[in-house]
Amino acid sequence: MKVTAQPSADTLTLLLDGELDASSAIVLDTELAKPDILNYRKVLIDCAKLSYISSAGLGVFISHLQRFQDANVKLIFFNMQEKVFNVFEILGLDALMTIVPSVTEAEAA
């Protein structure tokens, strides 16, 4: 999996490309664990090319959730494929995380 970071003024967009499983989770974790990520107001996760997410992949987001909330950084997912959204929904994460249809809503959030 490839993680591309696109910083702009107060927003960091992370593009996820490929399958997010136990092995690729480390790459994403490294990105989310960076201390200066908390300087952004919003972190947008572009899931357009995220084809699969395993429980280890979900674990990465879950482990950083509280830290982002404490620092008042909004974590917003968009462009999520239906299959991937189902995984978030079954686990109940859709009630806990902001998941919006497209970049327009993500930027407005």
């Binding site: 959730l65 509280q66 686990l91 109940g92 994460l93 009630a95 806990l96």
Partner: peptide
């Protein structure tokens, strides 16, 4: 039905989920 996995929210607010 809805319901959140265990160990995701680590405080009393879990009950709401």
């Amino acid at each position: 039905s809805t319901g959140l996995g265990l160990g995701i929210i680590r405080n009393e607010s879990y009950e709401k989920h």
